[in-house]
Design a protein around this nucleic acid. Structure first.
Length: 223
DNA sequence: AAGGTAGGCAACCGCCACACG
DNA sequence: TCGTGTGGCGGTTGCCTACCT
């Protein structure tokens, strides 16, 4: 809703500086200044993106290593895409989330130039709401389906009652068994994703492997 | 015009896993 | 084997802006 412009970011930075001046804590907190960004980038360029505590001290930044790491990974790192998540990316996020849950770093690993933080934010602000709406729709459809199925079962039961009592019992059992499997799709996929995912040899943004598990019949999530 | 509200994003917090001495 | 330091991750918060009343 509120587009984040350069101006707004700079204003935040100024506010952040003010907040830092007022804080009694030892390390800087809040928004990063352009100067801090530059220092951090320079140190990482010469020393590499590791040993964040060392980087923080070498850069002369009064910030903790964690903060430096986060800033680098989510903002300063080269080849970062910002905003404008495409339909393809969105589709992939939804599919991966269905498969992996809130494992944002894994999901981000399949989206070049996207950070886990960005995906997490995008999910929380955009997709989760749409998913809820979709689930409600599906829930309503499912209820209608179940009512319809119950009526059919009743008809079958009545028919079988009149012929064979034993046969009716077996039919009922199998129906219940099938229904119990239909609840949570994720529970059907009994795989260890940590062992399973090896991204090294796969092309990025390739939906085939996701579709293998989730099924192409799903089609697009949001129409 | 002013205040309230919701959306969006950056950054922080707390926990956990791993490496190393 | 244990303790400590560090990095990584997901959840949450805080702030700013645009929109609504």
């Amino acid at each position: 809703m509120a587009p984040v412009t350069k101006d707004s970011i700079n204003r935040r930075k100024v506010k952040g500086v003010e907040a830092m001046k007022n804080t009694k804590r030892e390390v800087n907190r809040g928004a990063w200044t352009a100067e801090e960004d530059q220092k951090l980038a320079e140190v990482i360029e010469t020393h590499g993106a590791k040993r964040w505590k060392t980087i923080a001290s070498k850069a002369g930044l009064n910030r903790c290593g964690k903060s430096c790491r986060l800033r680098w990974l989510n903002y300063l790192r080269p080849n970062i895409k910002r905003g404008n998540i495409s339909e393809q990316e969105e589709d992939l996020i939804v599919r991966l989330h269905k498969l992996l849950g809130n494992r944002w770093s894994l999901i981000a690993g399949r989206l070049p130039g996207r950070t886990d933080n960005e995906i997490k934010n995008y999910w929380n602000s955009h997709l989760s709401k749409r998913m809820n709406q979709k689930e409600k729709q599906n829930g309503a459809n499912l209820t209608r389906q179940m009512i319809s199925t119950d009526h059919q079962k009743d008809r079958v039961q009545t028919k079988e009652d009149s012929s064979s009592e034993e046969g009716a019992t077996s039919t009922s059992t199998s129906t219940t068994s099938a229904a119990s499997k239909g609840g949570d799709q994720n529970s059907d996929i009994n795989i260890d994703v940590d062992d399973f995912f090896d991204f090294s040899n796969e092309g990025l943004l390739n939906l085939e492997w996701v579709s293998k598990f989730l099924g192409q019949d799903d089609g697009r999530w949001f129409n």
